[in-house]
């Protein structure tokens, strides 16, 4: 890595330019971006195309006689109820979590946008869980959800209720994972909103106060419009992040029951490393890529419109 960092030095020496940098284009300037581009091409672009190629092979983890299969893997994917189910699950998960990240994140930010000690402690509390790794988060929540050992079940039994079957119910499993996820990483949207709120000039509120505008009205007419950009950033970021759901589902429910909580990435993992169907797994990854690309393009146009309008 040391070598890589030194390379941008070379152009200045190589082209003998003791009189300093010139304004305007020069090929040597490309050396600033070259180190990153090497990583980008080798570790992202190349595997992306290799993956696309693999998705058209009938290829297997330990068998080197891969055969070209055209679009057979894709054809199989879209006739695979389990895979279609994972697309539905993942989308549903995104639909459940993203609005919550936005609303709860914003509510917390509004409530904690103060400089006293209590608010600082509370901010630390809500952001603190984000630093835990997914394995620890799922251990914590298993201890909450489990019908026998779990804390929630214990509380419910204490009140004489039948404990809810979070992990074994096809309707509750994915929401349970969503709750865990929100608990885990609500801190980031909260912080982003806090930062945005602190950018709003105080004069705006002062003016509103003179107009005798209530809290509610100043929220609608001042706060909300001012943080529109941040809101968009949060929405895009969370959509991209939650589409890649893996660890929580794998460690909490293993995708069950009845495939109700199996996300796309888990499907890829299982096809690749359990069933050894590399071509099939690669095809599923390309579908994930396609969905994300569509989401990204849609977001791009949406953001343009809104910023303009």
């Amino acid at each position: 890595m040391t070598d890589v960092t030194l390379s941008p030095d070379k152009p200045t020496a190589a082209v003998r330019r003791p009189t300093g940098a010139s304004i305007g284009p020069h090929w040597a300037n490309a050396l600033f971006v070259a180190p990153y581009l090497v990583f980008y091409v080798v570790l992202l672009v190349y595997p992306l195309f290799k993956g696309i190629w693999m998705s058209m092979l009938e290829s297997d983890m330990f068998d080197n006689t891969s055969k070209f299969a055209g679009l057979a893997n894709y054809y199989r994917l879209f006739n695979d109820k389990i895979f279609i189910g994972t697309i539905w699950n993942t989308t549903w998960f995104v639909a459940m979590t993203v609005p919550v990240f936005v609303t709860i994140g914003l509510l917390l930010a509004l409530a904690l946008n103060r400089s006293d000690r209590t608010s600082a402690t509370l901010r630390a509390t809500f952001f603190g869980t984000s630093v835990l790794s997914v394995t620890i988060v799922t251990i914590v929540w298993k201890m909450m959800y489990m019908p026998g050992n779990g804390a929630i079940a214990g509380v419910m039994r204490y009140f004489g209720w039948e404990p809810l079957d979070f992990i074994t119910s096809a309707t509750l499993a994915l929401p349970a994972i969503a709750v865990t996820t929100v608990w885990w990483i609500i801190g980031l949207p909260m912080m982003l909103f806090l930062a945005a709120l602190q950018q709003i000039p105080g004069e705006l509120y002062e003016a509103a106060a003179l107009d005798n505008a209530g809290r509610w009205r100043s929220f609608w007419s001042i706060t909300l419009p001012s943080i529109r950009r941040t809101m968009l950033v949060v929405v895009i970021y969370e959509i991209v992040a939650q589409f890649q759901l893996f660890g929580q589902a794998w460690l909490l429910t293993k995708g069950g029951p009845n495939n109700a909580s199996r996300p796309i990435v888990l499907f890829i993992y299982e096809q690749g490393f359990r069933s050894w169907n590399l071509g099939y797994a690669a095809a599923a990854s390309e579908v994930l890529f396609l969905i994300m690309a569509i989401a990204a393009v849609a977001q791009f146009f949406a953001s343009r419109k809104r910023v303009e309008g």
């Binding site: 489990m146 019908p147 026998g148 050992n149 992990i167 074994t168």
Partner: peptide, 13 residues
């Protein structure tokens, strides 16, 4: 049968 127990819960149950 007991309901909704995972492996650990059933062992202790």
């Amino acid at each position: 049968t007991t309901k909704n127990q995972d492996y650990a819960a059933s062992v202790s149950s």
